[in-house]
Every structure is written in C-alpha cells, then in structure tokens.
Design a protein around this nucleic acid. Structure first.
Lengths: 231, 231
DNA sequence: GACAATAAACCGACCGTCGGTCAGTATACC
DNA sequence: GGTATACTGACCGACGGTCGGTTTATTGTC
C-alpha cells in the first residue's frame, strides 16, 4: 500500500472521524481496529502510532465530543442581560432545537447507542460530557441564587443533580427503544413521557421554583423524536 | 479430568458464585471464561451447556443480585402501621446499616466496580436492580400520596427519579475513588459530601416535603465508608 | 543548493489470548 | 437397553496489540 504522510493532528482527527462514524453505526465493541484503519487507509502500526490502544481512542473521541457539545451552548451562556431562569430555559430550548434539527440522524445514533452491549460508548461519552457541563450549569444556578430567584444551597451539587436527572430521561429512552416492536412498547413510551413531564417539575422543585417554571421537555417532543426515522 | 455430574440448578448457581467472586475481584472484562471454569472445575463445554455466552451469564448474575437486594428490604416494605415517610426513612436506614455492616468488603468491591473499564459490570447490575426496585419505591410514594404527606403527580416517575438520584452519589463516589491518591482527592471527597448532603434535600423537594424530612445519607457516613478498608 | 543525520510517521507480518464450537463420551433415569 | 442430558477438551477464528524495519519530513553543515 502506498505510504501517505500527513500532519499528526490531521491524521489523528481523521482517524477519530472514521472511528466516530463506525462507532455510531455499529457500536464500539463491534467495530474493530481493522475496520477503522481500512476506512482511513492506514496500517495497524500507523494507528498505534497515534493511539496507545483502542480504548484510549475512545477516550479521546469522548473528550472531543464533550468539547463540541459545550461549544454549542456558548452564546446562550454568555448572552448578557438574561435572567438565570430565562438563561436556563434558553439552554434547554437550544438543546431541543438541535435535537429536532437533525432528529433522524440522532435517532439512528441513539438506536445504536442505547442498545445493551453499547454501554461502554454511551457512558464513556456521558462521563466526558458531565465534568465539562457541570461548571457551566453551576454558573447559571449560582447566578439565579445571587438574583434571589433560585433557592438552593450548593449550586455545584445542584448542577450535578440536574444533569443526573437529564441523563435519566436518556435511560428511559433507552428502555423505550429497547421495547420497540414488542407488546410493551406503548407502555414504555407512556412511562417515558410521564417521566419527561415529571422531569421539569423535579428540576423546578430542586431549584426552589414554582412548578412549571422550567420547560425541559416540551409536550409532544418525545413522541416526535421517537418516531423520527432516516428516510 | 474426572467427570462430575451435578443437578443443573446447583451447577448453574455454583458457576454464578465463582463468576461473581471473580468479577468483583478483577472486573468483568478481565475475568476470562477459562478463569471461571478453572475455579469451578468444569470444562469449557460444560460452561456453555449452562450459559449461551459470557454476557448472558452476566445478565443472569445481575438478575440474581437484583433479586437478593430487593429481598433484603422485604420486611421494611411490608411492616404494617408505618407511615410513608417513616417507611421511606426506614428503607434508607436499612440500606445504610447494611453498607456499614460489611463496609470493608463493599469498599473492596466498589474499588473494582467503579474503576473505569468496569462500566459494563456496574451498569449491568444497575440496569437489573432499577426495574425491580422502582415498583417497590413507587408503592411507598403512592402510600404517601394517599396519606396526603407527599405532593407528587406520578409516583412511578418519582420513584424512577429518586433511584436515579441515588445512583448519582454512586457516580460521585466513583469519581472520588478514582481521585484517590491524587492531589484532587480531597476536593473530590468534599464534592461527594456536598452532593450527598444535597441529595436528601432534593428528594424532600421532589416529594413535596419540607427540607430535612428524608435522611438518605447521614453526616459522616460517606467519610466513614470511604475510609473503610479490608484489614 | 547538495547532502548527511536525526526524528517521526508509517508499514504489515506476526503473536497471544479469548470467546465460542462441536463431535463425541459418560451418567442418570425410565 | 435406550434415551435425554450433563459434560469433556481439542480446536477455531477473530481481535487487540507488537515490533523490526522502511519511508518521509526536517534540520543543521559546508
């Protein structure tokens, strides 16, 4: 095979690109290093020149995704003159809008990501995103506390818990996806929707707000998203 | 090797016993099927006569652990004449007492379970415990709602969220364990304690109780547990 | 500008291990 | 004696990872 030399950074991110596509298509464990290097046109040795192991590559990928995801919220977080509650709702609204915008692609990704046996990929990404997201959310909550809008002792702990809750609906979605096609599908969807409805209230109460202040999940959003499919 | 025939159920649970010991000692991935059959004194074929795959065995083990863990709460859940709040606190108290009783063994287990790379084992157990535990907690919450003590729309969704939160401190513990020995250890422990403190308040608020009603984690418990070590 | 010399990117044959298979054998039970 | 099933262990293919060696880029020297 002809030898092509590239700038290390370029090669590295290229390998990450191909790996990401494959991981999200087949899952982490079902993707072999050979698959990745074949797509990337690199030898085994070339791969291991850039990554110490397949797992280290996953870590690098998770870190990159975490960076990307926090970057998408930068403007919302830095917009001046926004009250804490408005900022928080803008944060959730942005999250919803992005999900709707490429719902089909995300749906396909979730189908893979949430299948049991892909826990590694799912939780590795989660583990990378949380520490990046916590300070950001904590800042909003601290603002709200300073404004006297939120009633909360520890903004940082509250941020962790809010993110925890947010992850909870993902778990419920995983259960619903797993149940798809079985008789329990409808029940799982109902459970998912009721959990999503409660999620907003739970967040309100944790932050000391009146019920209904936070709009985390819009009514109908779940069903719309769950039925989105790549055409 | 001499052939020993046993009752299928006995052999099966025996294999699970040895596997459990090994999984909690080295983790799921680092334990090979050969390790298990060596300890159990069974051939490869014998193993695969009882389990379709290593993963199916993990599932069976998780299910068994889930059964065992819910069984430990039976008396608390069925004790007559207990108010919902008292029952809930009895539930948490039992959980704490059990943890303290064999803290050293649990600590050693957590050390393995929470190491990154053992996500599979950890979350597989979790995934098995949650569906078993949700109805149980939901029953308590429904009781509280009927008594007019809890203010909560959907007991089942609330149960899922409370369990979700409970799992959250485990994640924080995982982070603290990971940080052990590094300069960030003290900070991680502080974060863990503050999250644990907030946990009770968060549960109170979600269930519509005044702050301080639920005692999920006693002060000092975390530090005591984290410093427990096998002698 | 020609030319070593050094470092770094890359190649690909090879290896050990692990999960899993299967054709056959021993044992329990009727 | 016959049948179902618990069990054996040699074997397999695939996968993550290694390593000695080769090519390319870069830098320093005259």
């Amino acid at each position: 095979m002809p030898r092509v030399v590239k700038h290390p950074d370029a090669r590295r991110s290229e390998l990450l690109d191909f790996a990401q596509a494959l991981f999200f298509e087949r899952g982490y464990e079902r993707t072999t290093v050979s698959d990745i290097i074949e797509k990337a046109g690199v030898s085994k040795g070339g791969f291991y020149h850039h990554f110490a192991s397949k797992e280290e590559m996953l870590e690098a990928l998770a870190a990159r995704l975490a960076q990307e995801s926090v970057a998408r919220f930068e403007d919302v977080l830095e917009a001046p003159g926004l009250g804490a509650l408005a900022r928080l709702n803008a944060f959730f609204a942005r999250s919803r809008r992005m999900k709707i915008e490429d719902a089909p692609r995300l749906r396909a990704m979730f189908d893979v990501l949430f299948k049991p046996g892909n826990l590694i990929l799912h939780h590795r990404i989660n583990a990378a995103v949380i520490p990046v997201m916590v300070p950001v959310l904590a800042a909003i909550i601290a603002q709200g506390k300073a404004e006297g809008v939120f009633d909360v002792p520890e903004p940082k702990a509250a941020a962790g818990i809010v993110l925890q809750l947010n992850g909870g609906i993902r778990d419920a979605m995983a259960r619903a996806i797993e149940a798809e096609g079985t008789p329990a599908a409808a029940a799982a969807l109902d459970a998912l929707e009721s959990e999503a409805r409660f999620l907003g209230i739970a967040m309100d109460r944790i932050l000391g707000l009146p019920d209904g202040s936070i709009v985390a999940v819009e009514p109908g959003f779940i069903r719309a998203f769950m039925s989105a499919r790549e055409e």
